[in-house]
């Protein structure tokens, strides 16, 4: 009887709810931590980013007009589906150099983080809204609204938890996102895309690219249709570049220099607020 061949997964991009290969046809050979196996990871190009931006923009109006409660449900659902895929993520984390125990912990933390932001999704607006005192006969109130399309560079040193910690607060706030996954540890990002795909997250709300940060950073930060950019890392040259490029259309640059993405310190509702804009309304009193 013949030996059965393993069917291995092709790691592709996640754009507009679909899993295309990179339009450039380029790949990065990624070797696992034990030097035992290798996979091809898509080397995303500026055109992949451009395509992802178009779908993110198209998805924005639908996503931001959903009720906060519904966004909360969907975030919770992502956590549920992730729970069911534990073993697959554990295998990938181990290939990327985690021990079995570390892998289990990272998956737990990732699920908990999704549930955490699911909880906040329908509460941050009340907490961050306020009635402002004004010296005339108006109600004056301010409340946060989604910024729009956010581009994000997920932490390089973290695979699953880093990506989850970046994406969850952005979409909880009603934004759509194009995120570049970790260059060093890209495996979990595309598997996470499969989780998103089966969690009622509309296509285009989260788009995940893999590739070289040095190649894509300029485009992530200069694209005029990006309304805010989230950068994780502490390379001062890169931070300078995104801040300069952000000035082109006054997109909001947000820099997280955190090292430990497993820590509870990197989750708080202010991370949702970071990609929101405040709208202030004056309403005449007595009419």
């Amino acid at each position: 009887m013949s030996q059965r061949e393993d069917i291995k997964k092709t790691y592709k991009l996640y754009i507009g709810g679909k899993f295309p290969r990179t339009e450039s046809g380029r790949y990065i050979k990624w070797v696992d931590a034990n030097n035992k196996g290798a996979v091809n990871i898509c080397r995303g190009s500026r055109k992949d980013f451009r395509n992802a931006m178009v779908t993110a923009r198209d998805a924005f109006s639908g996503w931001c007009s959903r009720t906060a409660y519904n966004r909360s449900q969907i975030l919770y659902r992502i956590g549920e589906i992730l729970e069911g895929r534990r073993s697959q993520f554990a295998n990938e984390l181990i290939l990327q150099g985690s021990s079995k125990k570390e892998a289990g912990n990272e998956i737990n933390q990732s699920i908990d983080r999704l549930i955490y932001y699911a909880g906040w999704a329908d509460k941050y607006q009340q907490i961050f809204s306020r009635v402002n005192p004004v010296a005339s006969s108006y109600f004056n109130f301010s409340y946060p609204e989604p910024t729009g399309v956010v581009s994000a560079l997920a932490p390089n040193n973290s695979s699953l938890i880093g990506l989850v910690s970046i994406v969850a607060p952005i979409i909880a706030g009603g934004n759509t996102v194009v995120v570049l996954a970790s260059e060093e540890k890209p495996l979990c990002s595309i598997t996470f895309a499969e989780v998103l795909h089966t969690s009622d997250v509309p296509g285009g709300v989260v788009n995940i690219l893999t590739g070289y940060r040095s190649e894509l950073l300029d485009h992530f930060s200069s694209h005029m249709d990006v309304n805010a950019i989230v950068y994780c890392g502490n390379e001062s040259e890169e931070i300078k570049l995104i801040q300069e490029n952000a000035a082109l259309n006054v997109k909001r640059p947000i820099v997280y220099t955190d090292e430990n993405w497993l820590s509870k310190n990197v989750q708080d509702p202010y991370r949702i607020l970071n990609t929101l804009e405040t709208k202030t309304t004056w309403h005449p009193v007595g009419i």
């Binding site: 451009r50 931006m53 485009h219 200069s222 694209h223 005029m224 249709d225 082109l248 259309n249």
Partner: peptide, 9 residues
């Protein structure tokens, strides 16, 4: 300009 544009402008 070399920069991708937005319909907003």
């Amino acid at each position: 300009t070399g920069v991708y544009q937005s319909a907003n402008y």
